[in-house]
């Protein structure tokens, strides 16, 4: 990804980025994503040889159990992980750029919890059982929570500082998740219906669900990628962006819509999965820089790779049983969050 390095006073290395290097890096990421998907299809509880995997993809035999496992379980799982990872990575990058808050993440700021509570409420009180309607309620929950966290974090002097917004997010997350838990304890039927979904997993997700969510996902991704240049300018600060002639209000509204669509879809499809949106943008910016025209597509690819690989590790660590992928991402993301709070947040 780097063509040359420049030494910094603090001994850190910085990368000089040319357009060609960035494009090459993007291609490498596509390659890595394909490899990750192959790994995700090849490894699992059942031992299936590479040759069988190949046949299952290119010469499908309906009578073979192995082929069925590949086709109906592992491929959907890899695809779901890729898309959810991409959505969370892009949503996290949008939030961090938009709020200039290095701790912004759809998980930490409670947006995923809000989306989850909204879905649980829909199941409990409105009797919604079609998983395709989950997406709509996930959007509503995500949008309301985002507004609440931002509003609460803006109170007091100095407006929405990273620290205040993060604390507001943590408080609202705790509040909403306790309501969710309460609802689930008192209603066995709702619990049965959403328990599997609530765990935050990419396993056993029907591809149909993804198809139903795809219009929203496409709008979310297209809107986010189209806003790349605007987010870069906005990341210099509101006043600077306005001074340069940006209509910051519009950019923020559109970026918020894209973020809510992506995070809402991710939650509707896979349940709440934390920390992907936090870790990935930081990793990407370290190599790619702060131009969001590049950061966003990189976040999509790296986020997809990250969630697929987390999912592969999650099913290999205690084989033949498996850990929910949400726990794997938290295991990696938790220490990273502490690192950010300790060394990277200046205000």
């Amino acid at each position: 990804m780097a063509s040359a390095t420049v030494a910094r006073p603090r001994g850190e290395m910085r990368f000089v980025r040319s357009r060609a290097a960035l494009l090459l890096g993007l291609l490498l990421c596509v390659g890595a994503l394909l490899l990750a998907m192959l790994a995700s299809i090849a490894f699992g509880a059942a031992d299936i040889s590479a040759a069988t995997v190949w046949q299952a993809i290119f010469a499908f035999d309906q009578s073979s159990t192995s082929h069925l496992i590949i086709r109906t379980l592992r491929i959907p799982r890899a695809v779901v992980a890729a898309i959810v990872g991409a959505a969370l990575g892009v949503a996290g990058a949008m939030m961090q750029g938009l709020t200039r808050n290095p701790l912004a993440d759809t998980g930490i700021l409670g947006i995923e919890t809000g989306a989850a509570l909204s879905v649980v409420c829909a199941v409990q009180f409105l009797g919604i059982s079609s998983i395709s309607l989950y997406a709509i309620f996930a959007f509503i929950g995500a949008a309301l929570t985002a507004a609440a966290v931002y509003g609460l974090g803006s109170l007091g002097r100095g407006g929405p500082t990273p620290l205040k917004v993060t604390v507001a997010g943590a408080a609202i997350t705790a509040f909403l998740s306790s309501i969710t838990t309460g609802l689930l304890i008192f209603n066995q039927r709702t619990l049965e219906e959403v328990r599997f979904w609530m765990a935050g997993s990419v396993a056993g997700r029907d591809l149909k669900l993804l198809v139903q969510a795809s219009p929203y996902l496409i709008v979310g991704f297209v809107l986010a990628l189209a806003l790349g240049r605007q987010i870069t300018t906005l990341s210099l600060g509101d006043d600077v962006a306005k001074g340069l002639g940006q209509r910051t209000g519009w950019v923020k509204i559109l970026a918020a819509i894209a973020t809510v669509l992506l995070a809402g879809c991710a939650v509707a499809v896979a349940g709440p999965i934390g920390f992907v949106g936090l870790v990935i943008p930081h990793m990407v910016r370290f190599f790619v820089g702060v131009d969001y025209r590049w950061v966003l597509p990189y976040c999509a690819l790296v986020g997809a790779c990250f969630l697929i690989m987390s999912d592969v590790v999650a099913r290999l660590v205690i084989r033949p049983s498996e850990v929910p992928v949400g726990i794997m991402t938290a295991l990696i993301g938790g220490p990273f969050f502490i690192y950010l709070v300790r060394w990277r947040v200046k205000r």
Binding site: R14, R100, L236, G289, V290
Partner: peptide
């Protein structure tokens, strides 16, 4: 004004 970290 504060530039985002890493902006050249």
């Amino acid at each position: 004004p504060i530039a985002p970290e890493g902006l050249t």
